[in-house]
Design a protein around this nucleic acid. Structure first.
Length: 790
DNA sequence: GAGCACTGC
């Protein structure tokens, strides 16, 4: 490994780390920072007083980079070098270098805030600015004050603005390690096209007709555009004169494609992942037939882990879909935005390539070179495709480029080792790139709902903790933090002064969003924990679970629904429960999943989540339940009398989703989400929620998510009883965000007193049986009136 | 009566 650029900087690095508690290392692509930095510190004795931790934003990265380091150190994984990701801890007492996802480190920090077991913490890939990395940056800043003498923190990334991070850490030093890149020719077009699907089509055909062999990779924003382009490409290729150019193979690649293979869940262990990867030479992974060019039309699915062998040409329209949260309305939307400068093409580093070559040579892998976003290709291309439950589609926002041809077939053809610069066609002018593109993507922390994050920080009990003033590298907006406080208050995680409650503490221990953890705790009280565990686990995997949307031509077939339960019309949560229960009845049968068009990988994931949550809930359960029993008996009730059976579960959901309650309009089936800026929303058409004989939906529902597509929709909806909703309405009425955020004033105290007397009367009124509904209605109207005044 | 990029605990 002596040839790696970073090794030449060893003395400088060690010297700087020795003299400073925090160091920023900007390792350009190809520098080998993720693998070499911890090994350098290990060699220099930094692991003697503790473990060297290296965080990664993704599971695959943690696994693969650690495997490689273990190999370089010539040890078995799990010995001196190990990794820890959710569901899998491959470390032992011997472990000195530990790779872990940043989420895992956050959880460890929950139970051991000083992270005493670590002598060095390396936050790798910080430029990706994942929510978890950003929280860790803030925590490290505090931690370094407590543990000044015995902790070193390194922040490494490819393109992160070093000056900014350095200022954040009181002007800590910034080291820049150069990398070595493969040559790539970048071509900008002179004018931005109006229709980028058409422009991509034109460019792709152009390449196909004029350029020598080599696959083409085209990045589009979503499934719709991909399907469109695939159809058009097929048409166009057909119309080309026979024999005028090589054959074409057109392959779509996006997240809703069914997995190419389905795994036996009982075998899903770490090593199983390895076996899976061997089988992965399918679809885009298999080499093309001779004299054939592949067109891979992809979302940014493989940015970091999926790699494609043989790509020489990349077409980059410069757009991506991004999920955004609006704290005023509580709604998510997916918006097409321009990519940022740090997301455009950079070739894979040479050093990584050489390592990969050594690693893979002689094994039955397609060797792949990734040419990626600034994000890291270099560190990762090796593992590529391993992921626990089959292969995960990921985004290739960077680019995959293959300069060397290494598969056996191609080697036999005598072309091995030939190099050729890749070409990247950017469908935007260089001026647009220079002047218009943001330097970096808006960090996730400024685009997400922060309820979970705020609860996490509150539960750490940091001294002088004022959540509105927590020191983030980039602060989220006040609105977003206030929204989080409001949500936490509604689910009883914090009290009216903003202090964490005992419920809130338990919630923070569950790896779930607050509504779901609150649901579990309430279900425990209402004796329906087993059912709630199932629902919550199903929701955790929901997007990978449902049948993949069929192609346009298959649309009709989709209208005959598979033989799945309908939740008694009470809502999607109940349906999810019933689906899992049926699966359980079949003894977790794979065939059953396939018959019912459910993604096996998703169901297996649900099972793991459920097991993990059961173990955590065991701590809080009321004593009668053993977690084994929870795991094995998802279907507790023997009685099967329909609606009544799920009453407690729905009540628990209502209390858990107190921040996501919606009320139906009087005359139609539109709903108004309560507690947010008033907007009319619809139940998503995919819901199994049923209307009554008059065609009306339930008066109150809780929803899992508000998502704006063509219109605002509630996805995953559950009918709740008006009586359960009433206390929430009352709580909404006395909501005082100013107090929640820690502020107090005389005026607020007065308001507080008035509202709390009101509340007592209100509750008394609601609890008296006579005239209940009209009183609830009155409270509801007052609430709405008040809200419209605002 | 619609259609959703990707991670993570």
């Amino acid at each position: 490994m002596g040839d790696l650029p970073i090794v030449r900087f060893e003395e400088k690095i060690v010297e700087t780390v020795e003299q400073n508690p925090v160091v920023v290392v900007i390792g350009e692509t190809g520098s080998g920072k993720s693998t070499q930095l911890p090994q350098i510190l290990y060699r220099r004795g930094y692991a003697q007083s503790g473990i060297i931790a290296v965080t990664q934003p993704r599971r695959v990265a943690a696994v693969s980079v650690s495997r490689r380091v273990a190999q370089e150190q010539n040890v078995q994984i799990g010995e001196e070098v190990g990794y820890a990701i959710r569901f899998e801890d491959r470390t032992s007492e011997k472990t000195r270098i530990k790779y872990l996802t940043d989420g895992v480190l956050l959880r460890e920090s929950l139970f051991n805030p000083e992270l005493n077991q670590y002598s060095v913490i390396i936050l790798d890939e910080a430029h990706e600015r994942s929510l978890n990395t950003d929280i860790l940056l803030g925590l490290m800043k505090r931690l370094i004050k407590w543990r000044h003498s015995n902790l070193k923190v390194l922040i490494t990334s490819a393109t992160l603005d070093g000056g900014k991070v350095s200022r954040f850490f009181s002007d800590c030093p910034v080291l820049t390690v150069p990398g070595e890149l493969f040559p790539v020719e970048i071509v900008h077009i002179s004018e931005r096209p109006k229709n980028y699907v058409e422009a991509s089509l034109k460019k792709a055909i152009d390449i196909h007709v004029r350029e020598p062999e080599g696959d083409i990779l085209i990045f589009l924003t979503g499934q719709d555009d991909i399907e469109k382009l695939v159809l058009k490409l097929e048409e166009k290729v057909q119309s080309l004169e026979e024999g005028s150019c090589m054959d074409a193979l057109i392959l779509p690649l996006h997240g809703s494609l069914p997995p190419e293979m389905q795994a036996n869940p009982s075998e899903c262990t770490g090593d199983f992942i390895y076996k899976l990867s061997v089988l992965l030479k399918v679809r885009v992974f298999s080499p093309p037939p001779p004299n054939c060019r592949r067109f891979i039309v992809s979302t940014n699915i493989a940015e970091t882990s999926l790699t494609v062998d043989g790509v020489v040409y990349v077409i980059d329209p410069g757009y991506v879909k991004q999920r955004q949260y609006n704290p005023a309305t509580g709604m998510y939307s997916l918006e097409v935005v321009q990519i940022s400068k740090c997301k455009v093409a950079l070739p894979v580093g040479k050093s990584s390539f050489l390592r990969m070559k050594r690693y893979f040579w002689g094994k039955s892998f397609p060797l792949v070179l990734r040419w990626s976003s600034s994000s890291k290709v270099d560190d990762f291309a090796v593992n590529t495709i391993f992921t626990p439950y089959g292969f995960s589609h990921r985004t290739l926002f960077g680019y995959l480029i293959d300069y060397f041809v290494l598969s056996a077939g191609k080697a036999a053809a005598g072309r091995a080792g030939r190099t050729r610069p890749g070409k990247c066609y950017r469908l935007y002018p260089s001026m647009v790139y220079r002047d218009d593109f943001l330097d970096a993507t808006v960090p996730e922390i400024q685009r997400s709902s922060l309820a979970g994050t705020v609860l996490y920080l509150k539960s750490l009990d940091l001294a002088d903790m004022d959540i509105l003033k927590f020191d983030f590298l980039d602060s989220p907006s006040i609105e977003s933090l206030e929204d989080a406080l409001k949500q936490l208050y509604l689910v009883d995680a914090i009290d009216e002064n903003g202090s964490i409650t005992s419920i809130g503490r338990k919630m923070a221990e569950l790896p779930l969003e607050p509504s779901l953890s609150r649901t579990l705790l309430e279900a425990n009280e209402l004796d329906c924990l087993s059912q709630a565990l199932t629902v919550v686990s199903m929701l955790s995997a929901e997007t990978t679970l449902l049948p993949a949307p069929g192609k346009r031509s298959e649309k009709k077939r989709k209208h005959t629904p598979p033989d799945l339960p309908d939740g008694f019309g009470l809502g999607d949560h109940i349906q999810l429960l019933q689906i899992y229960e049926q699966w359980y009845q079949t003894d977790y049968s794979i065939d059953w999943c396939k018959e019912n068009n459910l993604q096996v990988r998703g169901m297996v994931f649900v099972r793991s989540v459920r097991k993990q949550l059961s173990q955590i809930m065991q701590k809080f359960s009321k004593g009668y339940s053993f977690w084994l029993w929870l795991i094995r008996c998802p279907n507790k009730q023997k009685r099967r009398d329909g609606q009544q059976e799920y009453r407690n579960l729905r009540k628990a959901l209502c209390i858990g989703y107190a921040n996501q309650l919606a009320e139906r309009m009087i005359r139609h089936n539109g709903y108004r989400p309560l507690g947010f800026k008033s907007e009319l929303v619809q139940v998503h058409p995919s819901s199994v929620l049923k209307s009554d004989e008059d065609g009306m939906l339930p008066n109150y529902v809780v929803y899992h998510e508000l998502i704006v597509t063509s219109r605002p929709f509630m996805r995953n909806v559950c009918a709740v009883d008006m009586r359960w909703a009433a206390p929430i309405l009352v709580k909404l009425e006395k909501l005082n965000v100013f107090k929640l955020s820690g502020g107090t004033s005389e005026r607020d105290k007065q308001i507080q007193e008035v509202t709390s007397t009101m509340e007592k009367k209100e509750i008394a009124a609601i609890q008296s049986p006579e005239d209940r509904d009209s009183r609830i209605q009155a409270a509801r109207e007052r609430f709405l009136a008040r809200k419209s005044q605002k």
